[in-house]
Amino acid sequence: MKAPRFAYIRPESLDEVLELLAEHGDDARILAGGQSLMPTLNMRLSRPRLLIDINRIEELKGISFEDGTVRIGALARHGEVMTSSIVAEHLPMIAEAMPHVAHVAIRNRGTFGGSIALADPAAELPACAVALGAEFVLANKRGRRNVAARSFFNGLYETERADDELLVETRIPAIESGYRSSFMELARRHGDFALAGVCCHARVDGNVLSDVRLAYFGSEDRPRFADGASAAAEGKAWSEDVKEAVKTALGDDLDPIGNFHASAATRLHLARVLTGRAIDRMVAAG
């Protein structure tokens, strides 16, 4: 189908964007990569009065590393994140996740900030942000605030971002020495939305796990940090028994939503299997 009518503006500065958001709020939509917004417009699931195209705002671009933190600008394209040497070195989980994010032509346009702000429950990057303890920087006309990834996602496409706010960047702590990450996903076609996915991050000493962080996507209405499963592995030497304990605990952490792609039981089963494999691989990687 064709998109409904809307007005379009392409501001040259961040101040101008924030001014427009203050004025138009929910009547406006931010157009970054457009890889999720445009389908909803073409299918007429969304009818904003105004699109604010932020693609030419320089300060929203780029990826940098400083003081143990990687800053990913809202406009960093997926393709750019995928090939970034900073990401490869300091955020191996994200580097591993990127090839699963859609397809080449979509990665050439889609943005990191867009994926976070949209909060699709099947998307990889929100769950990576939750596992890695990322912070999102939100700006409005009056100032800026940082929101932790774990308290940012409120539900299906719902986040802490207010209508007058723009997500300007994501700040992610670089992986520390002794830590490892592992990312796994199952989808029907490579690059399609996940049926189940897991992000693991932990300190691995020999085969002993600590500071274990397990986050899931493609399960329910938001990325889910698995408190119980993470705790079940904490301080343990990885073994088949611990694996079973983690899988059992996961049943209390996750409450998957079934649909015609996969039932709730299938999704939980897949999440359990992926968790075992992901931690196996993380431990073996040493």
Binding site: Y8, G34, Q35, M38, N42, L51, H103, A105, I106, R109
Partner: peptide, 22 residues
Amino acid sequence: HGVCGACTVRVDGSIVRGCLML
């Protein structure tokens, strides 16, 4: 809506979904 890829065009040196860009 960005699934099939029949609309692929090259913009500034990279392929994009032509139906997902204004």
